[in-house]
Design a protein around this nucleic acid. Structure first.
Lengths: 215, 215
DNA sequence: CGGGATATGTTTACGCTGTCAACACTTGCA
DNA sequence: TGCAAGTGTTGACAGCGTAAACATATCCCG
């Protein structure tokens, strides 16, 4: 017999782009339920394929989750890029400050709008060397982390930040904003109204900026 | 027949303090493998009891994990208390600064020394109202969060921090230190040597302190 | 063009997990 | 003394990740 069981589900025996389809399904699962909800069998079910077909494209469940995490990071980068793109032209110094603020604001906004995707994005241990991988980048080709370093480079270039303070500055900034996002979506601040969350976000960024520019 | 299968494993049919025993087993599982490793059947196995005995003390796996998370938070509090206890006597202002620093340093040190326990401690969504619950507290009766608020209160009391800046200050401090700890154990800074990690920790605390005391 | 190598998807099967229902033993209290 | 409540056990089930063997499609080389 020819293509019997799958004939009405799929045009051909082969899927065409199963890898991407599984990632897409995984992203939807993650959006709804976070990293725990990315279950291999459910993803294959939604795509209309047998459970083990996934193993032709991913070593194991962990590998699928990593791909979904990368996709979530790319979405985060896209959200941040949108905030950056909205900055009006102006003096280099003004733009630099606005850019750092856009990174922080966009970061927290994404976390609040997509809490489960955000959790998924950071549910996989990351290495420094591939923190800027294309799979984690937005349309502009930069990952969330790379966008932050770019913003800080502008801080130095425009003279706001003394060069000797630049090394590892991204870690200070990232720590504060990321920690705050975690506090908002999973921690004691879960119930904080959005308006207040946005207000405190600005205070967090103020603190970071002061730490970079202060005497 | 009387106590046949369990006779040689346990003195009596009843365990005595199964709840605490399961939490202790869960803590060891978490220490080795983080929240995912806290598996109900394995905990009961280690305690020498049937899987379903756990359901007399915990509604489900999630409830056991929550109890283990509380225990991990209590250990974190204990570690922080040790750092605070080591502060020499002195002027109120000096002590206040040292106390905030002890909270931050102890927090990060615990995360580096017990990364999986640390992850477990924050793997369960927390509510603000019971952030200071006794089950999450150290010998001194304070939880990590409460220890931080106490340190910040001293900042105001000793006149270092203007009172109008006090509201929600714990969230700024907590964000920075917690985010940095995450970066160190699960993020791009995983490979950073301990000495450098400690150095950057101090910079993080500098930044927070500057944000509180600056003009 | 034809045919074998290779890629991709399926079937079957296994052990492990969380959890439900029904049963058994123990303890404490009326 | 007896019974109700508390605690632990047995047996069962569905769902999960994944390994092994098999089936089909596609690609490339003669």
């Amino acid at each position: 017999m020819t293509t019997s069981a799958i004939g009405h589900l799929r045009p051909s025996y082969h899927h065409g782009d199963l890898r991407q389809a599984l990632i897409a399904a995984g992203v939807e699962l993650a959006r709804a339920g976070g990293p725990e909800a990315v279950v291999l069998r459910e993803a294959t079910r939604q795509v209309g394929v047998s459970p083990n077909a996934a193993y032709r494209h991913f070593a194991d469940r962990e590998a699928l989750l990593a791909a979904v995490s990368d996709a979530a990071l790319a979405m985060l980068a896209t959200a941040i890029e949108a905030h950056i793109a909205a900055i009006p032209r102006g003096a280099a110094e003004t733009v630099a400050r606005a850019q750092l603020r856009a990174v922080g604001t966009g970061y927290v906004a994404f976390a609040l709008d997509n809490p489960q995707l955000f959790r998924t994005a950071f549910s996989v241990p990351a290495d420094l060397q591939d923190a800027g991988a294309p799979s984690r980048s937005g349309p502009g080709g930069l990952s969330p982390f790379t966008l932050l370093t770019a913003a800080l480079d502008q801080f130095v270039a425009s003279g706001i930040m003394p060069p000797e303070r630049r090394p590892q500055a991204e870690f200070l900034a990232w720590s504060s904003v990321h920690g705050f996002a975690m506090l908002l979506i999973d921690g004691p601040l879960r119930a904080l109204p959005r308006a207040q969350a946005d207000a405190v976000t600005q205070r967090v960024i103020d603190m970071v900026e002061a730490g970079f520019t202060a005497p």
